[in-house]
Computed example of a mutant assay.
Amino acid sequence: MQDVLAVVTVVVVGLMVGVEFAVAVFVNPILDRLPDNGGLAARGDGARVLGRVMPFWYICSLVLGAVWAALTWGAAGAPLIAAGAGLLVVSVVMSILLLVPINSRVATWSRDGVPADWKQQVNRWDRFHYVRVAVIIAAFTLFTVALVQV
């Protein structure tokens, strides 16, 4: 059962990392290069769609990591698993405190217009998102290494 939990955790977190990495490195830069700020509507739609899905994905990843850490406590890879789960806690806190407030505003832009400082808000979100992606990549790496050790 622990083996199944370990694999499911690594797959769920790995897929989340892939989505967030793609948004940071490919999707948003492509949207930002569209002429006449054409990417703003797409960012707003992405904020609405991913804003509904990602909280569940982050919490599910965190719960899986925490359960895996609890079940393997004392085993060889347990400190790595616990550290990975801790990093997922950091990513959730970052999301709630830093990214969600900006994302919530971006989600309304296509309906309510665009504020004068929209570029600064988008750039701020992107910077926070890069840090969050680094945090979840580190968690994924720890989980992957632990998968081999446990």
Rank of each mutant, 00 (worst) to 15 (best):
I102G: 00
A47C: 02
I59M: 14
M16E: 10
V89Y: 04
V19Y: 07
Y58D: 05
L64E: 02
V122R: 10
A75H: 10
A42E: 09
W109N: 02
V7L: 14
R124M: 08
V89L: 11
L98N: 11
G38T: 07
D117H: 10
E20W: 04
R127K: 12
L40S: 07
A116K: 12
A41H: 12
A22F: 14
A82K: 03
D36W: 10
P101T: 10
A82E: 00
E20D: 13
V150L: 15
V63T: 02
F143P: 00
Q120S: 13
F140H: 11
L88V: 00
Q2C: 07
R127W: 10
G39P: 01
T9K: 01
A78T: 00
L80N: 02
G86L: 00
T108N: 14
F140C: 11
V10T: 12
V8W: 08
F56H: 09
A85R: 03
V135N: 02
P29E: 00
A70H: 06
L87S: 00
S110Q: 14
W57E: 10
L40E: 07
L98H: 11
Q2K: 13
T9Q: 05
V4I: 15
A42N: 09
V13D: 03
G39T: 02
F143H: 02
V148N: 11
G14A: 00
G39D: 11
A116T: 09
L71I: 09
L80F: 12
I30A: 15
R105T: 12
G74C: 02
L147E: 09
A139P: 02
A22E: 09
V53K: 05
R127N: 05
V93H: 10
R43M: 13
Q2L: 15
D3V: 09
V10Y: 06
W57V: 15
N28G: 05
L97R: 14
V89H: 05
R33V: 04
G18N: 02
V92M: 04
F143Y: 06
V25M: 13
A66L: 12
R105E: 01
N37E: 15
G113F: 08
A139D: 05
I81M: 07
L142E: 01
T144M: 01
V131N: 06
L31Q: 14
S61C: 08
S110W: 06
P79M: 02
Y130K: 12
I30E: 11
A134K: 06
R124F: 07
V17F: 07
L87F: 01
C60I: 15
T9I: 08
A107T: 06
V93F: 07
V90F: 02
V8F: 08
H129E: 03
R132W: 02
Q121R: 13
R33A: 11
M54I: 14
I59T: 12
G18M: 01
G18R: 00
V92I: 15
L62Y: 09
V10F: 06
S91Y: 06
L62W: 09
L87N: 00
M1S: 12
L34S: 03
I136L: 03
L142F: 05
A22L: 13
S104V: 08
I96S: 06
W68C: 01
S91H: 07
A42Q: 12
S110V: 06
M54W: 06
W68D: 01
M1L: 13
V49T: 13
S104L: 11
G44Y: 03
S104K: 13
W73A: 14
V106E: 01
P115Q: 10
L80Y: 06
L64K: 01
V10S: 08
V23L: 13
V19F: 10
V122W: 07
V19C: 07
A22Q: 11
A70P: 06
